[in-house]
């Protein structure tokens, strides 16, 4: 071949250089700034605190002693576990249901896009309506059946549940679509072979489909898990972290510290912890998808 590898290489570098340069400016620099801020007691009411590195560990010491922060970790854990679990389950069931060769069902798939492409803030408004006793058809219907429901979002036992339901509604189509895409790659021969061996629907699912989908399931779950750390609009609109701190996840607490109380330094320290969690989870995804160093 007449083409030189050097020419290729140069072209690729020219393509990649602007991307990386801009990406570095818009993401790496801010991350360094965030790290630096987390080492200062920055508080905008006191401008002198801006580059004060005299006690770099101070925020991290507060972090270890902050009960409300630890509570928020726990809330986060509950929220993530329930939403990801339910989304995987529902996503899987719906994917199985829709994975039949039928034009009609294929057309219907589009409809499932709606919850996940809606602006999250609109999703929050939708659920605010359903959770407001004065106008909610759900409250009305249950009351008419003689089973009145308390206002969920101000009830400590149900507030988190209310958020979970809304979040699952918004995002189970994502896991569904992922699993559906995975299912469509399932070789028909495998299914046929199992059928010939006399496998019923349950065994087919358990021994053929699930193992085949393992990679897809893992990646879908990880994506949802990382996303669940970002939960904001639903909490902002529905509960504001309350009642008390029942629905206050770490991300939300960090937001309050930074933008309600102006403790930007402390909030940065909390955020550094969140980013670290994102890095670890993303690393697992990269491994799972096999996009690590290539060995083709």
């Amino acid at each position: 071949m007449a083409r030189s590898a050097a020419l290729d290489r140069r072209f690729h570098w020219w393509c990649l250089a602007p991307t990386l340069a801009v990406l570095a400016v818009v993401t790496l620099l801010p991350t360094l700034y965030l790290l630096a801020t987390s080492l200062t007691p920055l508080n905008l009411t006191q401008p002198r605190t801006a580059w004060d590195f005299s006690q770099p560990g101070r925020n991290y010491t507060f972090l270890a002693a902050d009960g409300r922060l630890h509570g928020s970790f726990w809330v986060q854990l509950k929220l993530s576990a329930w939403t990801v679990g339910l989304q995987m389950l529902l996503g899987f069931l719906f994917a199985l249901l829709l994975n039949l060769r039928s034009r009609f069902l294929e057309a219907l798939r589009t409809v499932f896009l709606i919850p996940m492409v809606l602006p999250p803030i609109v999703v929050a408004i939708i659920w605010k309506v359903l959770y407001t006793p004065d106008i909610s058809p759900v409250h009305w219907a249950l009351a008419a059946l003689g089973w009145p429901m308390p206002a969920l979002i101000t009830h400590p036992a149900y507030a988190l549940l209310a958020i979970i339901v809304a979040d699952v509604w918004e995002w189970f189509p994502f896991t569904m679509l992922m699993i559906l895409a995975g299912l469509q790659m399932l070789p028909q021969e495998m299914v046929d072979a199992a059928r010939i061996d006399g496998a019923g629907a349950w065994r087919l699912t358990r021994h053929i489909v699930l193992p085949f989908l393992r990679g897809v399931l893992l990646v879908a779950a990880l994506f949802r898990l990382i996303d669940s750390i970002k939960a904001f609009p639903l909490i902002f609109i529905l509960t504001d972290g309350g009642p008390g701190t029942v629905t206050e996840v770490t991300n939300y607490y960090s937001y309050i510290q930074a933008f309600n109380f102006s403790y930007l330094g402390y909030s940065s320290a909390i955020t550094v912890v969140l980013v670290s969690a994102t890095v670890v989870l993303s690393a697992i995804i990269v491994r799972a998808v096999g996009w690590g160093p290539r060995s083709e």
Binding site: L23, T27, L29, P30, T31, Y33, L34, T37, F223, I226, D227, I229, K230, F232, N251, S254, Y255, A258, L264, S267, S268, T271, L274, V275, T278, L281, S282
Partner: peptide
């Protein structure tokens, strides 16, 4: 960069 919580970039 794609998955980081928005607050991580918002503060800086």
């Amino acid at each position: 960069s794609r998955m980081a919580p928005p607050i991580a970039f918002t503060i800086p």
